[in-house]
Amino acid sequence: MRGEFQEESFDETLLSNLETKLAHHLSASAVSARNLQGERDKIKTLIADISHQTKTPIANVLLYAQLLVEQCPENCRPYTAALAGQARKLQSLIDALVKTSRLEAGVLVLRPRPGPLGPMLEEAAAQFAPRAAEKGLELVLEPTEADAVFDPKWTGEAVCNLIDNAVKYTPSGRVAVSARAYELFARVDVEDTGPGVPEEELEKLFQRFYRGGAADQAEGVGVGLYLVRQIAQGQGGYVKAFSRPGRGARFSLFLPRN
Rank of each mutant, 00 (worst) to 15 (best):
C76Q: 15
Q53G: 00
D49L: 08
S101H: 11
D49R: 11
V109P: 04
D49E: 13
T80M: 15
V107I: 14
E74C: 07
S101N: 06
C72R: 15
S92Q: 02
R88V: 14
R102D: 07
Q53D: 11
R77I: 06
L67T: 14
G106H: 07
T80H: 15
H52V: 04
A48E: 06
P57R: 01
Q91L: 06
T56L: 15
E70R: 05
A105W: 03
A48S: 13
T56G: 03
H52L: 12
R88M: 09
I58H: 00
T80L: 07
P78Y: 06
E70P: 09
S92M: 03
S51C: 09
Q91H: 05
L93H: 05
K89H: 07
K99T: 07
T45L: 12
A84P: 02
T56Y: 05
P57D: 00
S92I: 00
Q53M: 02
L90E: 01
R88S: 10
Y79S: 10
Q86I: 05
R88Y: 10
Q66H: 12
E74D: 15
T54P: 04
P57G: 04
E74A: 13
A96H: 13
V61W: 08
R102Q: 13
Q66A: 04
I50R: 01
T54I: 03
A87C: 01
G106V: 02
I58A: 01
A84F: 12
N60I: 14
R77A: 15
G106E: 02
D49G: 06
T54Q: 00
V61L: 15
D95T: 06
A87V: 01
R77G: 06
Q53P: 02
Q86V: 08
A87N: 05
P78G: 12
Q71C: 09
D95W: 03
N60M: 11
N75G: 05
I43A: 07
I50G: 04
L68C: 14
A48K: 12
A59D: 01
T56A: 05
T80W: 09
K89F: 00
L90K: 01
A59R: 06
L110G: 03
P73W: 11
P73I: 11
